[in-house]
Design a protein around this nucleic acid. Structure first.
Lengths: 227, 227
DNA sequence: GAGATATTCATGAAATCTTCATATTCCACA
DNA sequence: TGTGGAATATGAAGATTTCATGAATATCTC
């Protein structure tokens, strides 16, 4: 499953050039030539990254950026594209919530490198997180331990994902319960989490020699560690 | 609770210029003029972001970058700084694991904007309070003394956090008790606090030569001091 | 309904907390 | 400068909390 990138650009030449490079780099590319289409594509395809030209007809790139950032759309990364090369323009763009800012004209290969840098950091949900031989692919719903597929239950999977998304951070049982039941519709005991942790540990720390991945932090919760 | 930034740059002028801007923007800044110092500072201060010049004496910036990445994979963000402005240089830098790449000469205000863009993603994880080699990272549930991890119990941790959050302020035992039991559900004696303080002191003032961090203010309570 | 999964329960062991008894320090005042 | 009383430090013992675990029960899914 490839990460999806939305390219918002009204200039057809640039749009296609960028698309070709991104596709060659292994991404799923969606294009939009104006703000309306961009919003629609965003809703439908839920891209993990947006390449956003600032000079657009009707709805401006800046306005779109705010829209993407509003509500709970913070997860998506945005790389701005603009002919405006003044320092203040760049600062304004970044302050607006862009993760990166590139000036036209640009080398598409460099754009790809920037995309990869940004996704390495933020696109975890779209791709794969790996720590010491343990890797999780959220979209595929798949977990591998040194290449061997691990069958996890839904709760185990969600727990592990949240752990690997927050390495070295102490997660309280309340926090973990909330991850499993975001709608607060269920009253479960702390002990339930313990039980899931136990089962999860058995699966990801299968051999006695394998490193302890999930530490218990007495009185506080659990922590996924690496290194 | 400012994020810590490590600036690795051999040119003193640039180093100080960058430091000034970053400090003005509210960051805790550590500087290093060469690779060895950088590694040492990295270990001790655990910065959440590194501004890394590529042209360094002895150990190159590229080598350092790999070292940082191997040391703590994703945890630290890296912004590269270089006079090399060719597209291929930027691509190489980003591929090496940098989160961003800026070319010299640069506007320090723009650098700050880039720093903020990068930290917007990752900054929440590296909140930290540091006084004289003693640092606490609430989200990690971790305390370090000159880079060495200290195992604290929950109460010790909470006490220390409250102390470091209120440096140089006298905290009464009642206040401290309230910190440990915000729900007022427990009646504990003042002596209990004394006992925790004793254990905490043993851990954070482990050597006879180490400075006294927690002072007793007779008749009033305790005070965490620095400088 | 059957198998898989989720949740709860009960238990023991271990870590941690709290208190108590005693020692030490500090300060006021002679 | 010495002394007594109050406040704090300390070590150890007992009490409590917390967690891992295995088994029992409930719930979900097909």
């Amino acid at each position: 499953m490839k990460p999806t990138i939305l390219v918002v650009e009204d200039d057809r030449m640039i749009r296609e050039l960028v698309s070709i490079y991104l596709e060659k780099a292994g991404y799923e590319v969606i294009v939009a030539a104006n703000g309306e289409d961009a919003k629609e594509s965003f809703r439908v395809f839920q891209p993990c990254l947006i390449i956003l030209d600032l000079m657009l007809p009707k709805i401006s790139g800046e306005e779109l950026c705010s829209w993407f950032r509003s509500e709970k759309r913070n997860e998506v990364s945005i790389i701005m594209l603009s002919a405006k090369a003044k320092t203040q323009d760049k600062i304004d763009g970044l302050k607006m919530g862009a993760d990166d800012y590139m000036t036209k004209p640009f080398d598409p290969a460099e754009l790809v490198a920037h995309v990869e840098a940004v996704l390495r950091r933020t696109g975890q949900f779209c791709q794969k997180i790996t720590y010491g031989g343990l890797s999780i692919q959220p979209r595929k719903g798949e977990v591998q331990l040194f290449g061997k597929k691990l069958p996890l239950t839904k709760n185990e999977f969600n727990l592990l994902f949240h752990f690997m998304d927050n390495p070295n951070i102490v997660l309280s049982r309340d926090d973990l319960i909330y991850q499993l039941y975001p709608y607060n519709d269920k009253m479960v005991l702390d002990r339930t989490i313990d039980a899931h942790i136990k089962n999860l540990r058995e699966k990801i720390e299968d051999e006695p020699s394998s490193p302890k991945r999930i530490l218990t932090v007495r009185g506080m919760g659990y922590k996924f560690v690496h290194d």
